[in-house]
Amino acid sequence: MAMIDIHVKILRYQPGKDDKPGWQDFAISVEDEATILDVLNEIHWRHDGTLAYRRSCRSSICGSCAMKVNGRNVLACETPIHRFGSKLKIEPLSGFEIIKDLVVDLEPFFAKLKRIKPYLIVDKPLPDKEFVQTQEQLEQIGESTLCILCAACSAACPSSWPNQEYLGPAALLKAYRFVFDSRDDGADQRLEIVNDKNGVWRCHTIFNCMEACPKKIKITEYLSRLKVKVVENSL
């Protein structure tokens, strides 16, 4: 463990003060094992208290700290600086309105989630104990339940950038997660919702979401399965 000097550029924006976002440079010393979050904390705690960013768990499960570092969407807490070297360029997620500095407006993101009815819909009577679900049936949705709603996927999606109405990869992945759950009876309702030009059809299999996903979920593949399901259902 040693201290190293790094150069950090951060895209700053303070509402009411700045007309538009602008770069600010910081030259700081951190441990060579530091993460991006450690860098931000160091700046915020010792250099400039006005810097704003989101963070909470520090263990890649809460999804607060997704941001763009040297052009890539990452979780700041789990990303060591050595992945990028001694020059860092940190900016907020693309495709969202900036509230302040690295903090973006996620209200539309969560509103889209709500739209696809993200809850189990059950028509049959509930069993006394658990539903029986085989390991194979669970396997269908297993990986999709890993999603931490960090929004890195939507921020990486070229279809999402120009079009605020597109549901986006995270909400669609959630739709997949319920449509393919063996216990769910609400597939028709959800497929109806995603069967829209601003639903699953705006996904052009660009694969950016998959590349950006910190949980390495095969989002594009699941969205493709969702498309097939919609077609099967509507023909």
Binding site: Y119, L120, V122, L126, D128, K129, E130, F131, V132, Q133, T134, Q135, Q137, L138, I141, G142, T145, F178, D181, R183, D184
Partner: peptide
């Protein structure tokens, strides 16, 4: 726990699906 399962929590399963 059963309530959670009925809400759709993806619990890991035994061989017989419980």
């Amino acid at each position: 726990v059963y309530e959670f399962e009925h809400m759709g929590v993806p619990f890991s399963r035994t061989e017989d699906g419980r």
